[in-house]
Amino acid sequence: MILVSACLLGVCCKYSGGDNKNQKVVDLIKKYNLIPVCPEQLGGLSTPRKPAEIQAEDAKKVLDGIGKVVNVCGEDVTQNFVKGAYETLKLANLYDVKIAIFKSKSPSCGCGFIYDGSFSGKLKSGNGVTTELLIQNGIKVYTEDDIDYKTIEKIMKIDY
């Protein structure tokens, strides 16, 4: 079982109402059981919604109740992001998920780099809120940029 950002599979759950369909990720469904999730929707946000960014040192601060996630209008949506992260973790635990493939740069799903909170398109090192929670719970998270069959097979120790 692999947890996957639903937008990467073509589900229109992106903040703008569109998707981030990635054929490389979609093709994984031929060999693997993929569980699509959108942490932002699981947290109660609508689609479409205003873009949001983490305005804290990192997602750990958000999970610890010190940092915030705000949308482009300055509205605090931290509670939605944290709720969505925990709901995603519940699904991961329910299905005994060990890895996730998430949307890069997202304030929920980003892994390694996220937008810096200034809504200027600048990136900083860090993870999205859901990614950070999953990593804290022993789940390995990758983005669509660093995944392919060979990598998945190595990660899952499957010999084809």
Rank of each mutant, 00 (worst) to 15 (best):
I29Y: 11
Q79N: 15
L28I: 13
S46I: 11
N20C: 01
A56Q: 06
Q23P: 14
I29D: 12
C7Q: 02
I54A: 03
S46V: 13
G74S: 13
C13T: 02
Y15H: 02
K21L: 05
V69D: 07
K31V: 14
P51C: 01
V11C: 05
Y15M: 03
E57G: 00
Q23D: 15
V11R: 03
R49C: 01
V11A: 02
E40K: 04
A56K: 01
G43R: 15
L34P: 15
V11I: 13
P48L: 01
C12S: 06
D27T: 10
A6Y: 03
V77C: 08
Q41S: 11
C13A: 07
Y32K: 14
L42Q: 12
A59I: 07
I66F: 04
V37S: 11
N22K: 13
L34N: 12
T47M: 00
V37R: 07
Y86V: 10
L63D: 08
K83E: 11
K24A: 08
T47S: 01
K83G: 07
K60T: 09
K61L: 11
P51K: 07
V37P: 14
G44R: 09
E57P: 12
V72M: 07
C73V: 06
L28R: 06
G65C: 07
G10R: 10
E87H: 14
N80C: 09
V69W: 00
Q41W: 06
G17S: 08
P36T: 04
S16E: 01
G43I: 07
T47Q: 00
K60W: 05
P51R: 05
E53C: 14
V62W: 00
Q79W: 07
G67Q: 13
E57H: 01
G18T: 07
Q41R: 15
C73R: 10
G44F: 10
G18L: 01
R49Y: 03
I29A: 12
C7D: 02
G18N: 04
N80I: 03
V11G: 01
E53W: 09
V69G: 13
N80G: 09
V25F: 08
N22C: 12
C12H: 06
Y15W: 02
P36L: 05
G43D: 10
C12G: 08
L9Q: 11
V69F: 10
V26A: 07
K68P: 08
K31H: 14
I35P: 04
N71R: 10
N22F: 06
G44A: 04
C7N: 09
G44D: 03
G84D: 09
G43W: 04
K21Y: 02
G74P: 15
V62S: 00
K30H: 08
I29Q: 12
D27G: 08
C38N: 08
Y86W: 15
Y32H: 13
C7L: 04
L42A: 14
